[in-house]
Amino acid sequence: MRNSVYLRRHWQLYSLLLLPVIYFIIFKYGPMYGVQIAFKDFNFFQGIGGSKWVGLDVFREVFQNNNFFKALRNTLMLNLLDLIVSFPAPLILAIMLYELRITWFKKLAQTILYVPHFISWVIIGGIVLQVFGTQSGFINNLLAGMGLDAIPFLSDKNYWLVTYLLIGVWQSAGWGTILYLAALTGINKELFEAAEVDGASRFKKILHISLPGIKTTIATLLIINLGNMISIGFDRPFIIGNVAVRDYSEVLSTFVYRVGIESGQISLATAVGLFQALVGLIFLLASNYASKKLADESIL
């Protein structure tokens, strides 16, 4: 009885909620009907319902495919390296920005750092070619002018890896500072003042006030990052990668694109997608559990 009164009183709020709920049902849960494609020999004309069930045949095919394992290995490798290189970058940047006292310079620096985030990967791909190309690239032209040998930034797989990671830092670090900056602003100013009175150096203040103050944020972001270990964006490896470095640049998302969408093997692509989702879930739960045990911070 009380519930219905409550509902009647706040019906506007509930109807506001309706829209996002519908969105999730239609666009997130509805399409899950299609997951069964992974267990079927999908035939476009017979449809999802009409296609034959084949049990785990598709998964067997996936796990017998060498290229799948190569893509899986590359996905994990690129993500892990990205975590090592790209995860601390925005944290360090945010703390440095927070320490800045000249407001206009701080604003300017922030804006300049954000800009790459808003550039489409396609455009970044073009810039990368102009800067890092072996024959036409700006850097190699400089090197050639000094009589040095060209460095194959994009066509040797090890150099490519470095290029890939650094471009990632450049593109995302500035934007990543936003969450940390917000968390830093939330720290009680009196703590800093008290530390100053006690004669703490700037470094000590960072170590003992700033960092502990944003511990939760760091843990949350780390959990999200670990949970995403198995999934990788499509644009960056697809656009920065090229035929010469496919040994490293072929990841699960580009593999699904090539095999599933380009070659029309929808069943295979769905199976890989489902596999990715499952492993992703395991990663997420595991890292959340570990974080809860170790740091007493969790998001679930």
Partner: peptide, 25 residues
């Protein structure tokens, strides 16, 4: 990204394919 992708792909196909299979038969 990819999981969402294949599902996105599957979404419209569900509708189209269901209708088409009936009509085709």
């Amino acid at each position: 990204m990819t999981t969402r992708w294949s599902k996105k792909w599957a979404g419209p196909t569900v509708a189209v394919v269901l209708i088409s299979s009936m009509l085709l038969s």
